[in-house]
Design a protein around this nucleic acid. Structure first.
Length: 839
RNA sequence: GGGCGGUUAGCUCAGUUGGUUAGAGCACUCGCCUUACAAGCGAGGGGUCCCCAGUUCGAGUCUGGGACCGCCCACCA
């Protein structure tokens, strides 16, 4: 169907065609040439391989694609690096669920078969999100898709492990970890979230071994007492000073525990006596190490009681607690119990309560890695937007602790360490000889993600891609993985490549549900961006999400998406109007003949400059809304209406095509589909996505802007009078126009539906003053209506005049305000008085 | 317990270094199928800028205090 006959832009019909053309063109896969300084690259935050597109992906995709397309328009070779993350725990959990559905378990089929199953799972579901990104119009390099477990990537990960191991920064230790019973694995501090829980605080009496009394300790975890190794008091606590050095006898167990002094203990909390359980409490662990205390484990990695106290062996933790309480009650050791609300750690992944326990794990030393990552931000080599986030970044890095990098999973990079008797071997490949067993653990998924910007480009090999596109330019992501991922990429990037892996980090908004709650599947508050694309088109979704975004979290509003859809449709119809009227076979060219022609060129230039500045400042909301204002408020509402009375000669046709063509270019980074569709109709050649716009912007024409602004103000004033006076919209009214030259009068007359007269000396029924000129309506308006309107206008003017006079008679204002402000106030007063006089 | 951000029209949000009568989109009211678009066009109504105090000739904007909401960090049993 010809464009002229399509009354509406139909995204569902257009989008698949456009995507196909983009993909065929090879445009999204730039050759690795040139230098990183002249090229532009972004590495996408790798979505989980089995994930589906959610609102965060859609917003972040819109942001990154806008940046990438903007860079392409500037003639930069732009590469948006694509790939997915193997997502250890998340993927393993899904595959395990499937196995259960098939009546088996991962333990039953064994490690090798399980990993094979997981690769099958990836083959089956791994492509979903990539296809969804295509629907969004994301101009990712689909020809070079990476995976954090592909061959080259594995090579990079193993090399990093081996290198940092030999540097002594990766080590194995028995240490307190966050044990997640849900995934059966240790997890890092960052994967723990605090939640409020209602518990009971038990006060338990520990008798002194010499029979001279007792001390009372408070705990919400009575079952951990089985692993107590000491009781601590504050060294300055007068109540207990004399007890330090004595021992108590642990109830139920009979072990003698020393009473020690440690400044950690708060004298004003509870009883001032703290039971020390290094095996099951992070603080107690630290205290235990300070005092050289033994580390006992009452709870095992299976979430059941160990054989430390045979009476409770094998009981799940919750049952053990009940049993311990019963036993303590029997001997009358519980002095008090009170309800207690506090925060306790939960696994972010499995949602289960974290069990702190001591475990043999791999750790990475972070201090030396953190220092240059802090310096990068301090020196301005790395800029974080919004700026307020850089403080969070620095604070976290300054207080960084060792990172537990081992996970008791099967799906991931297996730790490249082998054991044989007392021997330990670390290397990228298995050691020679028999009898070696590889460490069964895999690396934290974030260990491999930390290498993302360079491992995806072929590091550690000096590939052409690495030379052309690394370091990358921008990293765009949500706030919640600033530490988990961004900071670690910076640390690893600087350590391994000597370069900050990107120069700008953009932290985008989190989009909440319309009611302000979190968008989540489990709450039922999620909105599927693909459904939105179906309903409003990808352009509408992109525009809407960008227009919503901000420097903080925002609520989702479908109206903004609809606004974007309306914009796409508006641009489509504006183009349709121009090409149905323009002379045939005319090439676009700026050829202004009239004041409005000059005006729109000036406004277009301003819109372009503004758009570029907004995008480069990561202010996508303003970029999108500014585009909307230009297209609606200036191009369609005024310019196209202003030219409608004119003959579409060659010069006007060429000029209109030029304006439309440049508008389509301007809008392309945000609404690529409709603009690509229109491109050939406004004289564009090839793909708009490949079009280099350059950055030369025509100088503003302020004279034309002033004149057309007067026309607009006059038209609006007359329309307002007509409407208030009940004039039929179609009627042309005779009017005298003073203070405007003929060209402007003609414009006003057409848009306000006036018949300008000069030889009619009837008395006006209404006088409309506006910006130094006035329009006298000679007919149409009902005299009474007119009188009421005049009265209202007079009242408003008088209000303003007295306000201005009051200001100017205020000595403080005249004496202290800047001269320009005072002068402006005087000018305004004069203008108001003139307008009042004209009424 | 610390830190950060927010509070402006019915809703979602703008508001530059303090300076016209505080804006937009959506919603609402009235009028229009005016030959690009009724998913459109025109004209309107609607605000105690969270509260209190202060600085200033002048405060939505700056300062102090408070209230409420959200987020981040944190080892009080």
């Amino acid at each position: 169907m010809s464009l002229k006959d399509r009354k509406r832009f139909e995204p569902s019909e257009v989008e698949p065609r456009i995507v196909a053309r983009w993909l065929e063109s090879g445009l999204f896969h730039p050759e690795p040439e040139g230098s990183p300084a002249e090229n532009f690259s972004i590495a996408i935050p790798p979505p989980n391989v089995t994930g589906a597109l959610h609102m965060g992906h859609a917003l972040n995709g819109s942001v990154q694609d806008t940046l990438i397309r903007h860079a392409r328009q500037q003639g930069r070779r732009a590469k948006w690096i694509l790939g997915t993350d193997h997502a250890g725990i998340a993927t393993q959990t899904q595959v395990e669920k499937r196995l259960v559905g098939e009546g088996t378990t991962r333990e039953a089929i064994g490690r090798a078969a399980f990993i094979e199953k997981t690769w099958e799972w990836r083959a089956e579901f791994g492509g979903t999100i990539i296809e969804q990104f295509k629907r969004l119009g994301a101009s990712l390099d689909y020809e070079q898709e990476r995976f954090t477990l592909d061959e080259g990537y594995v090579k990079a990960v193993l090399k990093v492990f081996v290198d940092l191991y030999s540097k002594g920064w990766i080590y194995r230790d028995n240490y307190m970890v966050n044990w997640d019973p849900g995934s059966g694995s240790a997890i890092s501090d960052l994967e723990v979230e605090e939640r409020e829980a209602d518990d009971t605080l038990f006060h338990i009496a520990y008798p002194l071994s010499d029979g001279s009394g007792e001390v009372v300790v408070a705990t919400v975890r009575p079952e951990t007492m089985l692993a107590d190794v000491a009781v601590a008091v504050h060294p300055d606590d007068e109540r207990y000073k004399d007890l330090v050095g004595k021992t108590v006898t642990l109830p139920l167990v009979g072990r003698e525990l020393p009473i020690i002094a440690d400044e950690y203990v708060k004298t004003d909390f509870g009883t001032g006596c703290l039971k020390i359980t290094p095996g099951h409490d992070p603080n107690d662990f630290e205290i235990g190490r300070r005092h050289g205390l033994p580390e006992l484990s009452a709870i095992g990695e299976d979430g059941r009681m160990t054989d430390l106290v045979p009476q409770f062996e094998g009981l799940p933790v919750a049952e053990a607690q009940a049993a311990v309480v019963v036993a303590l009650d029997e001997i009358g050791a519980i002095r008090a119990r009170e309800p207690y609300t506090h925060t306790v750690p939960f696994s972010h992944r499995s949602g289960q309560r974290i069990e702190p326990l001591i475990s043999l794990q791999w750790f990475m030393k972070m201090d030396e890695l953190a220092a240059p990552a802090i310096a990068a931000v301090r020196d301005g080599k790395l800029r974080i937007h919004p700026e307020s986030q850089s403080r969070r970044y620095v604070d976290w890095l300054e207080n960084i602790r060792p990172w537990c990098i081992s996970r008791q999973l099967w799906w991931g990079h297996q730790i490249p360490v082998w054991y044989r008797d007392e021997q330990v071997y670390c290397g990228a490949t298995a050691p020679e000889g028999d009898g070696w067993t590889q460490d069964p653990d895999v690396l934290d998924t974030w260990f491999s993600s930390a290498l993302w910007p360079f491992a995806t480009l072929g590091w550690p090999d000096e590939t052409p891609e690495l030379q052309a596109f690394y370091p990358t330019d921008v990293l765009s992501t949500a706030r919640d993985i600033l530490f988990l991922w961004v900071a670690r990429m910076v640390m690893m990037g600087i350590e391994l490549t000597g370069e900050t892996p990107f120069s700008d980090v953009y932290i985008h908004s989190v989009i909440q549900a319309p009611d302000g709650r979190r968008m989540s599947k489990s709450l039922g508050t999620g909105i599927d961006p693909v459904d939105l694309i179906d309903a409003h088109g990808a352009d509408g979704v992109r525009f809407g999400l960008l227009a919503m975004s901000s420097t903080q979290d925002v609520r989702f509003s479908e109206e903004k998406v609809a606004q974007g859809q309306a914009l796409a449709n508006k641009l489509f119809n504006a183009t349709r109007f121009v090409i149905t009227n323009a002379a045939e076979g005319i090439a676009p060219a700026a050829s202004p003949q009239t004041v409005e022609d000059r005006w729109i060129l000036s406004r277009l230039g301003a819109a372009r400059a503004d758009f570029a500045a907004r995008v480069e400042a990561f202010d996508f909301s303003k970029a999108a809304l500014g585009l909307y204002d230009f297209v609606y408020g200036e191009l369609c509402d005024w310019y196209l209406e202003l030219i409608k009375g004119r003959e579409f000669d060659d010069m006007l046709s060429a000029h209109l095509l030029h304006v439309l063509r440049e508008t389509v270019v301007l809008a392309h980074p945000i609404i690529p589909f409709v603009t690509e569709e229109l491109w050939p109709h406004v004289g564009g050649e090839g793909l708009l996505a490949a079009h280099v716009a350059g950055d030369v912007v025509a100088p503003r024409d302020l004279d034309a802007e002033r004149e057309v602004e007067r026309v607009i103000a006059t038209v609006q004033a007359v329309r307002s009078w007509r409407d208030a006076g009940g004039v039929k919209p179609g009627a042309f009214l005779a009017a005298r126009c003073d203070g405007l030259d003929d060209e402007l009068v003609a414009l006003v007359a057409r848009l306000a539906r006036l018949t300008p007269v000069t030889d009619d000396d009837r008395a006006p029924v209404a006088v409309i003053p506006v910006r130094g000129c006035q329009v006298e309506l000679l007919e149409g308006v009902d005299p009474q209506e007119a009188a009421a309107k005049v009265e209202a206008a007079r009242k408003a003017l008088q209000g303003e005049i007295s306000r201005a006079e009051g200001k100017l008679s205020n000595q403080g204002f005249v004496a202290k305000a800047p001269d320009a402000v005072v002068a402006a106030e005087r000018e305004k007063l004069d203008r108001l008085k003139a307008e009042l006089a004209a009424l």
